[in-house]
Write a protein that binds this DNA or RNA. Structure first.
Length: 259
DNA sequence: ATGGTCGGTCTCCGA
């Protein structure tokens, strides 16, 4: 089974790029972030034509997440527990059926800039809520994957120019510590495990020729529960998409799991 | 060293 995460930065602008990539990469399940669309406006038909079930959690203009799956889904959930007043569309969760049940949690973690400030407070509180949800899922000993745009650079080796990020919410010690608390519950960073060492990036800013200079960061992550980590065969980053026409500023990250 | 780019639209904000 192949699972992927892709921050598409707007479904309307990225539909052709997305369908071309889906046809080529043929993932079984994909979590999308920043669809920037309400559910009613999401272009389901061209994705269904490629064999995918489509579940969205959208909102107007910003954020928005989705799951595309070639396999049946159950137990759909569209919010991260812990704050009923949070109306930002950043979490979608489901169980993939058709074999051994696999819980998929697709997430778009808050950016948090500028820091300090209310947006950074929201990021840290959101991460505390995610930690609580991960605890629950792990306690159930389910096969589970938490994948998406984490907006956290885990370590200095995950940035081409770590010094440029020193005061950024993506790299501040509090953000990195909060991510470590989640990972240390018992998750495996699949890309770290299969593509060790520096120089693996998933995001290059549109500005200042970041792509041409390979000034990237690794912020899109696939974290595996212990049961799924045992099944990890391969992980990859589809870097070439960043060099195509009208690219997203993120590229897909994927894993292949044993059946 | 600095400035610079996208997407969706709220012709500005978020990233």
């Amino acid at each position: 089974m192949k699972l992927a995460t892709f921050n598409i930065n707007g479904i309307k602008a990225r539909l052709d790029a997305l369908t071309a990539w889906l046809a080529e990469a043929a993932p079984d399940v994909v979590c999308l972030q920043e669809i920037k669309s309400v559910d009613e406006a999401f272009p389901r038909a061209p994705l269904e034509a490629l064999g995918y079930r489509v579940e969205t959690h959208g909102q107007k203009s910003f954020n928005g997440v989705a799951i595309l799956s070639k396999l049946p889904l159950s137990d759909l959930r569209r919010s991260l527990p812990g704050d009923d007043t949070d109306d930002q569309a950043r979490w979608i969760e489901a169980v993939v059926e058709g074999g051994r049940p696999l819980r998929i949690c697709g997430l778009y973690l808050p950016n948090g800039n500028p820091a300090p400030g209310p947006k950074f407070d929201y990021k840290l509180s959101w991460m505390a809520r995610m930690e609580a949800r991960v605890r629950e899922v792990l306690a159930a000993e389910e096969h589970a994957v938490f994948l998406g745009d984490y907006n956290v650079i885990p370590q200095a080796e995950d940035a081409a120019r770590p010094e440029a990020w020193a005061t950024d919410a993506l790299f501040l010690p509090e953000s990195r510590a909060a991510l470590r608390r989640i990972v240390n519950l018992g998750l495996t960073d699949a890309v770290r495990a299969r593509m060790p060492g520096p120089g693996v990036y998933t995001f290059w800013d549109y500005q200042a020729g970041a792509w041409e200079r390979n000034n990237g960061i690794r912020i899109d992550h696939v974290l595996l529960s212990p049961q799924v980590a045992d099944r990890l065969e391969e992980a990859g980053v589809d870097k070439a998409l960043r060099g195509t026409e009208k690219p997203s500023d993120h590229v897909p990250v994927w894993v292949r799991l044993a059946a």
